[in-house]
Design a protein around this nucleic acid. Structure first.
Lengths: 198, 198
DNA sequence: GCGGCTATTGTGGATATCCGCAGAGTCGGC
DNA sequence: GCCGACTCTGCGGATATCCACAATAGCCGC
């Protein structure tokens, strides 16, 4: 199980939440400010975020925005005692996972956090697969990439040769290099790889 | 442009919204109750829904639930003067497109409705494509379907023949029937069709 | 029973794909 | 200048795919 990151400037609340989650075997990290979390955040930081809205300095919402613009995809659950509807709606539409008002129900919150952690883990697994794919794609040359795109578009070799203004033999060579580098044996497998099929 | 369906038991509000949207060239249909809309709703009802939460009889939220369970995918924008955060969060997490509190900004609401209508139109176009695909799939025989699945899985004809315990020639026949019925010329195109690629 | 649909298989030939062998030109780095 | 890459091309042969022609057989409905 990955970590729940609790960002709240109220130490008492951090402690209370820390106790709650640790008692349910959810690993917790506490952060006293949006700034402190933002600074320590790395693209490979895993888990989920429990974020207070109203804090000294940077607000939870602003932290969320900054994380999004840095490409953070971690699920975020907002926690607030001062939530109003437009804020909640805005946060959810931006992709927040949940928006919970204090006082909250302990069990419910724990369930939502656990769901979010599971979601994050799944997400990261998917991305790991995509990363391997991206690495293999990166080894292709320009020409190989062009040929690959046309192959995946369903064109026959002779058509590809025409469109690129080169001989069929050359297309065949690039094609076989693509297959080798992408570790597939047929055009169909390649198509499935790139279109993200099962 | 398809229709905006306004469901509100307050005739004055329906009229006011009707004027607002008609002045922006958005076709409007008004419904005095959740029940009346629910009764007239059909799976091919297009457009988007502007839904008051608090109404006599069935509430907007309940109408939303019932529509969802009937398979309705129309975008829904909730409109309420009594919204609280948990209700808004719940509605959005169930798939509502937006949740707007009264009093609202006219221009903003119109923009959101127009976005929602465009989204619905796009969605329906996609589904129309899928329906055509489903119709073509339905014309396949058992055997053809089996062969198709193996082809799309990237198997060669000889392997398919082995797995199904039939001759290569028979596989070729089924394969060509599949291509004909699905209106594609190559295995790659077929794969793209079935995996829903661009 | 006859006609239509489905499934099966074969022969033979036209295309397409896969691949090793061979060679050649460009470009950038050591 | 040499070496390594990327690109390009041809030849020939092994496989694979596509397809027309032809035929057998079971099942279902009229």
């Amino acid at each position: 199980m990955t970590t729940l990151h609790i960002v709240d400037d109220d130490e008492a609340i951090r402690d209370a939440l820390g106790w709650l989650f640790q008692s349910r075997n959810v690993p917790v990290a506490g952060w006293p400010s949006a700034e402190s979390f933002l600074e320590s955040w790395r693209p490979d930081t895993a888990g989920c975020l429990l974020l207070d809205i109203r804090m000294e300095g940077m607000s939870g919402l602003e932290l969320f925005d900054r994380l999004l613009s840095k490409g953070c995809r971690m699920p975020v659950i907002f926690l607030t005692g001062h939530g109003d509807v437009p804020i909640a709606v805005g946060a959810l539409k931006k992709g927040a996972r949940d928006f919970v008002e204090k006082p909250f129900n302990d069990n419910e919150l724990v369930d939502r956090v656990i769901d979010a952690l599971a979601y994050d883990a799944e997400q990261r697994e998917r991305e790991a697969g995509q990363a391997g794919l991206a690495a293999r794609l990166a080894t292709l040359t320009q020409r190989e990439r062009q040929v690959m795109e046309l192959v995946v578009a369903g064109r026959l070799n002779k058509v590809i040769a025409d469109e690129l203004g080169i001989s069929m033999r050359t297309v065949e060579v690039h094609r076989s290099h693509v297959f080798e580098k992408m570790r597939v044996k047929t055009a169909v497998e390649l198509t499935r790889l790139l279109t993200g099929a099962a």
